Amino acid sequence: MPHSYSDVPASLPKTLQTAFQQSPELFAVMGLPVAAEVMDGLSNHVLRVTAEKGVFFLRLGTGGAKAPVDRYREAHNVRLAADIGVAVAPIFIEPSTGTLVTRSVEGLVASGDDLPELLGKQLASLHTSGLQFEGDINPKHVFESLFSQVNGARDALEPALLNNDLMDQIGDLAALFEARGTETGIEPVPSHGDLSPGNCLFATRRVWLIDWEFSGMAARSWDLAYAIQEHGFDAAAESRFLQAYQGQGGLKVSNRDLQITKARCDSISAMWALLQISKGRDRKVFAPFAHDRFTRAFNSSLGFS
Rank of each mutant, 00 (worst) to 15 (best):
L115N: 04
H127C: 00
N138R: 13
G193W: 05
P188I: 00
A153R: 02
D165R: 07
P116E: 06
Q169Y: 12
L195V: 07
T184R: 03
L195S: 07
L108K: 15
I186C: 12
R103T: 06
P188F: 00
R154M: 05
L123K: 04
E158D: 06
Q149C: 07
G120W: 03
P159D: 10
K140V: 02
D172C: 15
E106H: 15
V109Y: 10
Q169T: 11
G198K: 06
M167S: 02
D194N: 09
D194G: 07
G107K: 09
P188M: 03
D136W: 01
D168T: 05
F177Y: 15
S191L: 04
P188T: 02
N163T: 11
L131R: 01
G152R: 03
P159H: 03
F143Q: 09
D194V: 10
H192N: 14
E134G: 12
E187M: 13
D194L: 09
L126T: 02
K140S: 08
A175D: 15
Q149P: 01
V189A: 05
T182D: 06
Q132M: 14
D114T: 07
G193K: 08
F143A: 12
G135I: 06
Q169A: 15
G112Y: 04
V105Q: 11
G198Q: 07
V189Y: 00
E187I: 09
E106G: 11
V105N: 02
D114R: 04
I186K: 14
L126I: 06
L157F: 01
N151P: 01
Q132H: 10
F177K: 11
G171R: 08
F143K: 05
I137N: 01
M167L: 14
P188W: 00
